[in-house]
Design a binder for these strands. Sequence first.
DNA 1: CGAACCCTTGATGGCGATCAAACGCCGTGG
DNA 2: CCACGGCGTTTGATCGCCATCAAGGGTTCG
Lengths: 228, 228
Amino acid sequence: MRSGEKPEIARLPLFRDMDDTLRERVFSGSFLQVFPPQLVLFELGQRADFLHVLVDGLVELSVNSGGRDTTMRIVEPVTSFILAAVVNDLPYLMTARTLEPSRVLLVPAALIREVIRQDAALMQATMRELALAYRDLVRALADMKMRQSAERLGNYLLQQESQQTAAGTIHLKGEKRLLASLLGMTPENLSRAFSTLASHGVRVNGGKITIIDRDALCEFSRPDPIPV
Amino acid sequence: MRSGEKPEIARLPLFRDMDDTLRERVFSGSFLQVFPPQLVLFELGQRADFLHVLVDGLVELSVNSGGRDTTMRIVEPVTSFILAAVVNDLPYLMTARTLEPSRVLLVPAALIREVIRQDAALMQATMRELALAYRDLVRALADMKMRQSAERLGNYLLQQESQQTAAGTIHLKGEKRLLASLLGMTPENLSRAFSTLASHGVRVNGGKITIIDRDALCEFSRPDPIPV
DNA sequence: CGAACCCTTGATGGCGATCAAACGCCGTGG
DNA sequence: CCACGGCGTTTGATCGCCATCAAGGGTTCG
């Protein structure tokens, strides 16, 4: 891939501050690939061959073990994923699957590791990214351990609302069953959780959610006091 | 603190490969402090002032929010903790409390951040450490979402056994109520989970656990196929 | 138009939380 | 030295959240 082709990749926090010629080297050694929906990009247990950057589309990261399955993250463009497996050259802990037609930049793991060693700015950005990802997971784990399902949904909605453009309105990506799995519940109970939130300021219309009473939702969900 | 004082700190993966004079600079700017049990070292929401290294004793990292409380990690010597908050200069997401009389090395956050910028080996070690910690949390979250309580306990025991010296024998650190909170259950249910595991090759004697039938425990707990 | 499939709603059951009480351990004070 | 009280653990009883099973409505796609 050539560098100018996808300026939004170069603008990612991960790549933004690094040396231009090294960035060019990374991109020219990588390739942009198009995938149909429902395609498995890699599976848990495989050696981490590529750092992935989702350019367009939607990807699910899930863990499956012993017949059970749970989605760990929904990746939206433009974001890199599985950085942690790549930097330490360890097997993937998750399986990645496209949910929509997607374009993914595949950066060979050995290449990115080599350039990380050469470029302090890239290494620092990697370190920061990992630290932020770690903190996200700390929150997610505490959420799962301390809150019950409707509260988790409420907090998810509040968090989504804060980082989507239109205030008070949220568009769910993917199917509701996916959100259910992300929040650690069944589709049936997600549906019931939405009905519960109806009495706390939330209106649902398909994949479009409206928060008509933010205060009521906050009081019910007791969101994390520390901002992200 | 002087450098030769605590060679096992210098041998930590985090500090092992860095430049000697810079390591000396880090240690000389830090101080080793002794704390009594049950003392709060820092609280969730505070600005991260120090990178902590537990030299001796036992520390609990917990999250408390909305009247609820859950322990996220039990820190044993010699280990650093809350690296993620320090590198990004963000508030702590967890509260730290000593469980036993403890000695902790306090490294000023600004100092460690400065030296990280100067020393590529330290930065790389930080990056690796964060990536490994991230992967641990991915496992912990998947564990919490997919397994029920007795299975979680079984896996915890198998994991502890593999990283403690004596094969087949595990010494729990801290009280059982602490382990219960770490595993996301109540003390009552931890007790019941131990009884369940009695029919799967586990014997309990106070804080001393013996795995008398490893295969049976594995079959019951279905441990993660991917090694740590 | 029919067949999947997803979402929703209802009925039932199980895991785990809560409440309650008894036991054992340990440190204190009589 | 022993009695007592506090605390953690264990065991039992009950309750509530959520999973599971089941069925019906809506949408999409062949």
